[in-house]
């Protein structure tokens, strides 16, 4: 853990300015009516100008948009880590490690499917704590075993090594990916304790919400698919909504699971609309979007309770991720010829 004073004021001021530069609802409405090249042109006149210009010669259409989005995300989140100091750095880095997980997963998947390194390279989001040199070394290897070896010294080494044995037995990537996810989420709340008030209490509350929503999402998917999978291996500790017994019991019965979420004091009211929809329409995608929106709204409230704190940074991170996902959904949707209203359903807008 890094020591020393944090520069919360500086980081929040910069983050607020960047937050203001995110696309507004009207922009999305415009984007939905454009084709991929139109979207790229629109992005060129906004925040994404540099990325689009840099990549414009190498890619076109949806690929250009996708790579520009990834690179922009990496730039912004890399900036966050560069600016912040002390305790604040620690809190931000903790959350941004999810991109490390994403990168390692992408590399493992790439090796598994024998994709050439250049193609994997473009899918990486260099926003996490693993430095460029490590990622480049990871790209060069062509056995998953070597990946585990290179990660020696990081938090991912031990769980990956344990999961590797399972991988060798079954030949499926699931144990490796699960190990990475669990490692990330279980370290998220390390040494934070249970602060009762102040910005850090809100930070913990938000992370708990994220874990809870993830558990809820997994449980719903399991309940819906009816697959004979062991729910315990998907359970992530640290949330307040489920404990492991709850989850084991609830995945067998979808209605009871929905009731369990609705009865929770913290989330019941916030998710009531989405839960109603889930009961009636049986639409899992809608519910998952509602969860995303609820998380975004949650982080927004947190950032207005303590304007100068880590929560405002977190809220920016979330909003930015959402923007990237929305633009990607629009571009991909237009590419495959979805109608405007179908695309709008895919977007997460507050």
């Amino acid at each position: 853990m890094s020591q020393g004073a944090s520069n919360t004021e500086y980081v929040s001021a910069r983050v607020r300015a960047r937050r203001a530069a995110l696309f507004a609802d009207e922009d999305y409405r415009k984007l939905v009516r454009m084709g991929p090249s139109g979207i790229a042109r629109f992005m060129e006149e906004s925040e994404y100008e540099r990325e689009i210009n840099e990549l414009g010669a190498r890619f076109s259409g949806v690929d250009l948009i996708e790579h520009a989005l990834n690179r922009n995300l990496a730039k912004h989140f890399g900036d966050l880590l560069e600016w912040s100091e002390g305790r604040l750095y620690d809190l931000i880095a903790r959350y941004l490690r999810k991109f490390d997980v994403w990168n390692v997963k992408t590399i493992i998947r790439g090796i598994y499917t024998e994709t050439p390194a250049e193609e994997i390279q473009t899918d990486l989001i260099r926003a996490g704590e693993l430095d460029d040199a490590t990622l480049d070394r990871l790209l060069e290897v062509d056995a998953i075993e070597d990946v585990v070896e290179i990660l020696d010294g990081t938090v991912y080494h031990d769980p990956l090594e344990a999961a590797y044995e399972q991988f060798e037995e079954t030949g499926a990537l699931v144990p490796l990916e699960n190990a990475l996810d669990r490692e990330f989420y279980e370290h998220l709340l390390d040494n934070l304790g249970r602060p009762q008030e102040g910005p850090e209490a809100k930070y913990v509350e938000f992370l708990q919400a994220e874990i809870d929503f993830l558990n809820a999402r997994n449980a719903l998917r399991l309940a819906r698919s009816g697959a004979d999978l062991d729910p315990a291996s998907y359970y992530i500790a640290g949330g307040v909504l489920f404990d492991q017994q709850d989850l084991n019991r609830l995945v067998t019965d979808l209605d009871e699971l929905v009731d369990h979420i609705a009865e929770n004091k913290r989330y019941g009211k916030r998710l009531s609309g989405a839960l109603g929809q889930l009961r009636e329409a049986d639409s899992l995608i809608q519910f998952e979007h509602a969860l995303d929106a609820a998380l975004l709204e949650y982080s927004d409230t947190l950032s207005s309770i303590y304007p100068v704190s880590v929560s405002s940074v977190l809220s920016y991170i979330l909003a930015k991720e959402r923007e990237i996902e929305n633009i990607r959904a629009i571009a991909r949707g237009r590419e495959v010829g979805l109608s405007e209203s179908e695309i709008e359903e895919e977007l997460v807008i507050l």
Binding site: N7, E9, Y10, V11, S12, A13, R14, R16, A17, R18, W83, V308
Partner: peptide, 14 residues
């Protein structure tokens, strides 16, 4: 101290 840090942050953006 705090205001100055925030102001520099804001100026860096705009």
């Amino acid at each position: 101290r705090g205001i100055g840090a925030a102001a520099i942050g804001a100026i860096a953006e705009d």
